[in-house]
Nucleic acid binder design. Structure first.
Lengths: 226, 226
DNA sequence: ACATGTATACTTGTATGGTAGTGTGCAAGA
DNA sequence: TCTTGCACACTACCATACAAGTATACATGT
């Protein structure tokens, strides 16, 4: 039996755990954490902690200053904008592909996903609906054999995920979002790239919002613009 | 004085060194290297070696099988195709942006780069010309404040870089490439997105080539398609 | 001959001690 | 009051020792 990566290693578990803590804002942007602190807290040695730190710093979630300290990275609004551009550009291109080469079973998977969304919205289960939303987009990329590109988009979206949680009104208008998803789906099954792309663009600009208030409210969480 | 990352750390130097070795195919795809082997070779302890390994495995250049060994990753053609799609999609979108919002000094930087290309081609300096080519594209992304997106493209292009070296005829037709670059440049300064995008597409499909012969010649270097 | 158990030499994963660079508070002096 | 120097605590970084899983050669028993 061959394992690609050891899912049970302490360093990997720590990595996933800390990543969740950071994205969920339980670890505040700008706050400092040390190898010793974490190793004592979770009863492991410094080595796996260090390896988790390194990986997180590579993904931009931690910033390591040698011999000084390790800090939870501040939220970088220019990065958020770049990620938004990256996502919109690629999603439009991929949904175009999807209109040409989507297999029947992938269409079915999308359809099922929409059914779930319908249910979650009826039950007002925001958290599940948010996950289903992510899954919907992921399915489109998978159907076009672009799984790694989705992974890249997802990784670059970390700062956006943090911002989303800072908002007071996290209540998206899920009904609108469902309609947008349906439009994308219709574009795909009717092989109408114009419709699909338009719906996708509309969908992705809808989640965009003004950040000036957030910066005013939590100035210590944001990276200064130069 | 604050250093973002320690450029002089052993682990970082090892990372860069090994990355170069892998991309330059001096470390063969599929061959195995161990932490001990490298630590003895470069007279450092296992810890920095291990950290370099971890980082390289994250970028897909190494594959670590716990308790079994670490191997130079095989070249993944499906990944190459995905990277090509990623690059073409984003470069077209960014060159469009460049036609709208390119500052005068950025235009100048591009122009200088073209002058250098002219020189390198005249001197038949393929290596320098290749670097200038990369720099040309990087400059476009920088001019549009999309530096991180370029970084992503560059990182995903590792397998393509390895393939490029496998080719018998590495002699590109640099004259054609220079013309394509000039066309892109002209599109930008004349604020003509159609021209720029067309030139970019032409340029990026030109570097594409048939890989079946390579797979036949070096089957042990390639990952099997499933 | 062949299957099987086992010693052994690998591998990566983890723990721990030591080193050098960095920030901080406090005391001494102007 | 303000500056300077220095001890000290803290950090990430590196070296090293140990643990645990894996492959393989080889002896042993059938």
């Amino acid at each position: 039996m061959i394992f690609e990566t050891n899912k049970n290693s302490a360093s990997r578990k720590l990595y996933e755990l800390l990543k969740e803590e950071i994205i969920q804002l339980r670890l505040k942007p700008g706050s400092n954490i040390s190898e010793n602190e974490i190793s004592e807290k979770y009863n492991v040695s410094r080595t796996p902690v260090r390896e988790a730190f390194l990986r997180l710093s590579q993904e931009g979630l931690l910033t390591i200053y040698p011999q000084k300290g390790t800090f939870v990275s501040l939220i970088d609004l220019s990065l958020v904008e770049e990620a938004r551009f990256l996502r919109e550009t690629l999603e439009k291109a991929v949904v175009n592909l999807a209109c040409k080469e989507f297999s029947q079973e992938k269409v079915f998977a999308l359809e099922m996903n929409l059914k779930y969304q319908e249910m979650y919205i009826k039950n007002h289960d925001s958290e599940k609906q948010f996950q289903a939303d992510e899954q919907f987009h992921k399915l489109i990329f998978e159907g076009c054999d672009k799984t790694r590109i989705w992974k890249i988009i997802d990784e670059m979206n970390n700062d956006f995920k943090r911002i989303r949680l800072l908002r007071l009104a996290t209540n998206f208008n899920w009904d609108d979002i469902y309609i947008q998803h349906s439009n994308i789906f219709n574009g795909i099954i009717h092989k109408n790239p114009e419709l699909a792309e338009k719906a996708m663009k509309e969908h992705l600009t809808a989640v965009n919002f003004d950040k000036t208030e957030l910066v005013k409210k939590y100035p210590e969480y944001f990276k200064e613009v130069e």
